[in-house]
């Protein structure tokens, strides 16, 4: 069992790198775009709000798998022909962005209106209010579901193997395809995914502690 795992380890490294790449791209892009769209959803003019709402509801109603295949096979119809890696990243990012929009909305809307008013009263502009008063408080409610989403993204990145992208899941199957020894490899794979996500959870607990202060 153990030597099967040790044998497989180097072959999994490249796949592991792809998994990390996919997860990192998905999480960072969805965070950046999601926060902007989330703010637009709360503070923007009506047409923009409707658009973001439509986007978020539509994407969240489609299973990720369907989304992946839709981007890979469907997008060429509107002129966007993506290689499998980028199609998978795009689909995963779209999915996560919709989720981030909802986390942002929930977190910001849970802050009492009085906070915005007090910030206005001392003469802060919209951007200053968001940066210094709203977001620091929203962080506390934003972080737990978001961190959850991050670990989901890492786990969900395994779906890219269905487009033939050589992530860690696919690498595992490649070695099994050669040696036919499934069990040691699945255990090894689970262990690696676990290590990644456990570190992320530990990091998240530290982050949450930093942003916890008793709300008045």
């Amino acid at each position: 069992m153990l030597d099967a795992m040790l044998y497989a380890l180097p072959f999994l490294m490249e796949g592991l790198w792809v998994t990390i790449e996919v997860s990192f791209l998905t999480v960072s892009i969805s965070l950046a775009v999601g926060v902007v769209l989330g703010v637009a959803l709360i503070y923007g003019p009506l047409p923009l709000r409707l658009l973001v709402r439509l986007f978020s509801d539509t994407i969240r109603g489609i299973p990720i798998l369907v989304l992946i295949f839709f981007v890979y096979y469907g997008f060429p119809a509107i002129g966007i022909d993506l290689a499998s890696f980028w199609a998978a990243v795009t689909a995963l990012t779209l999915f996560k962005t919709a989720q981030v929009i909802e986390y942002v909305r929930g977190a910001v809307q849970s802050i009492p209106q009085g906070q915005t008013e007090a910030a206005m009263a001392i003469g802060l502009t919209f951007r200053e209010r968001l940066t210094n008063v709203i977001f620091p408080q929203a962080m506390r409610r934003f972080l737990p579901p978001w961190i959850n989403g991050v670990t989901d993204a890492v786990k969900g990145s395994a779906l890219v193997s269905l487009l033939g992208v050589t992530d860690m899941m696919y690498s595992i199957n490649q070695v099994i395809g050669r040696t036919y020894e499934a069990l040691p490899l699945y255990i090894l794979g689970a262990a690696i995914y676990f290590i990644i996500n456990y570190s992320l959870s530990a990091l998240s607990r530290r982050l949450e502690r930093r942003f916890s202060f008793v709300q008045a």
Binding site: P112, G114, Q115, E117, A118, A119, M120, A121, I122, G123, L124, T125, F126, E128, V133, P136, Q137, F211, F213, V214, Q215, A216
Partner: peptide, 24 residues
């Protein structure tokens, strides 16, 4: 506009019934 309004508001101070201190 946003900036002009912010500048105006800096000239008036407000104290609220429910304090509205920034908890963080």
């Amino acid at each position: 506009g946003e900036r002009a309004l912010a500048r105006m508001r800096a000239e008036t101070g407000m104290v609220f019934q429910s304090f509205n201190l920034f908890p963080h």
